Simulated assay, not measured.
Amino acid sequence: MDLEQMKKDLGGGAIFPIGEENRAYAQYFTGECYLNMLTTTGVGIGVVTFAPKTINAYHIHHKGGQILLVTGGRGWYQEEGQPARELRAGDVVNIPPEVRHWHGAAKDSWFQHLAVEVPAKGASNEWLSFLSREEYDKLD
Rank of each mutant, 00 (worst) to 15 (best):
T40H: 15
A14S: 15
L35H: 06
A24I: 15
R100Q: 01
E4M: 13
F29A: 04
I60H: 02
H113V: 06
E80K: 09
Q27E: 15
D9F: 07
L38K: 14
G73C: 06
G44I: 14
A26T: 02
V48H: 00
P96Q: 00
Y34D: 01
V70K: 07
R74A: 08
G42M: 12
I67M: 11
E86R: 12
V47F: 08
F50M: 03
A115H: 03
R88N: 10
V118N: 11
H59E: 00
V47Q: 08
K138L: 13
D140W: 11
Q5G: 03
R100H: 01
G31W: 03
Q66C: 02
I15M: 14
E21N: 04
K53D: 05
G12T: 09
A105W: 02
F111R: 04
I95W: 00
H103L: 02
G104F: 00
W110K: 03
M6H: 04
A84P: 13
V99F: 01
E21W: 04
A89L: 10
G42R: 15
G104Y: 07
F130S: 06
K138C: 07
I55M: 00
Q5M: 11
K7I: 03
G13N: 08
A123H: 12
V43R: 15
Q27H: 09
A106K: 08
G122M: 14
V99P: 02
E32T: 07
D108C: 04
K121Y: 12
E135P: 13
A84C: 06
G65Q: 03
A105M: 03
A57V: 12
M6Y: 06
P17L: 04
G31P: 05
N56E: 07
K7H: 15
G42N: 13
K53Q: 12
F50C: 03
L128F: 01
C33M: 05
T39W: 09
Q82C: 05
E86P: 08
F50E: 04
Q78H: 01
A120Y: 05
D137H: 12
G42A: 14
V116H: 06
G46L: 10
A84W: 06
A57R: 09
I95M: 01
E134V: 14
I45S: 09
L3D: 08
E98K: 06
W127K: 10
L68N: 03
A51I: 03
F16V: 09
H59Q: 08
A57W: 05
I95N: 00
